[in-house]
Computed example of a mutant assay.
Amino acid sequence: MIIILFRILIVAAIILLVYTFYQYYRNPKRKLHIAKANNEFYFLDEPDNSKKNLLFVYKGCSFEGEKYLGTTEQAFEVVNIHVFVHEPMELKGFTRDDLYFLEKEILTRYPYSKIEWKHPVNELVLTPIE
């Protein structure tokens, strides 16, 4: 009887390990960290949840955007997105073209939104092109 119980516990432990590995592999935050390490672009968002912030990584720099719901002519949509950088020192080497790319990616997902960049990115956007 003890041997059968021990075998059941071993099978349950194996199933738990497989399930834990599967959940770890599917975790979107892990994919975000991998994209940051590889200097790739990755966009993490729940479009159906307007209360959850959007996270994205581009060229090794992580950004976070706060979504604000508002009205359009048709329905309630995300109308404002305030984007800020977690580590401003990671912005080294960023150009306006990079910011335009990020704006384009955000606007493809939220076409009615107005993007507002927070400090220090807004300084690059607001300075005139010479």
Rank of each mutant, 00 (worst) to 15 (best):
K36S: 09
F101C: 04
G93K: 10
N27T: 03
P28A: 10
G60R: 02
E105I: 01
E116W: 04
P28M: 08
K114Y: 06
R30M: 10
F84K: 15
S62D: 12
K92I: 12
K29H: 13
K67C: 00
K92D: 11
V85W: 01
S50P: 10
N53Y: 04
N80G: 04
I106A: 01
D45V: 02
D98W: 02
K52Q: 15
L44F: 12
G93Y: 07
M89L: 12
K104E: 11
I106F: 00
L91H: 09
F94Q: 05
F43L: 05
N39Y: 14
V121T: 03
V79W: 00
S62R: 15
S113M: 05
E103F: 05
Y42W: 14
F101M: 13
I115Y: 02
E46V: 07
Y110D: 02
L107M: 09
V78M: 00
Y112R: 09
E40D: 15
E77I: 04
Y58T: 00
K59D: 03
E73K: 15
I106Y: 00
I81N: 00
P88R: 11
V121S: 02
R109H: 06
K67W: 00
N122I: 14
L107K: 03
T95R: 10
A75N: 13
Y68R: 15
Y58Q: 01
E46F: 07
D97T: 08
D45L: 02
K51I: 02
T71C: 06
N122H: 09
F56C: 00
L102S: 03
S113E: 05
E64T: 11
E40M: 09
E46S: 14
E64M: 14
P120C: 09
N39P: 03
A37W: 08
E116C: 05
N49W: 06
E90Q: 15
F56G: 00
F63P: 09
H33G: 06
F43W: 10
T72E: 08
T72Y: 10
S50W: 04
K67H: 01
G93T: 06
L69F: 06
N80P: 03
E103S: 14
L99G: 05
L107E: 01
H86E: 13
K36C: 06
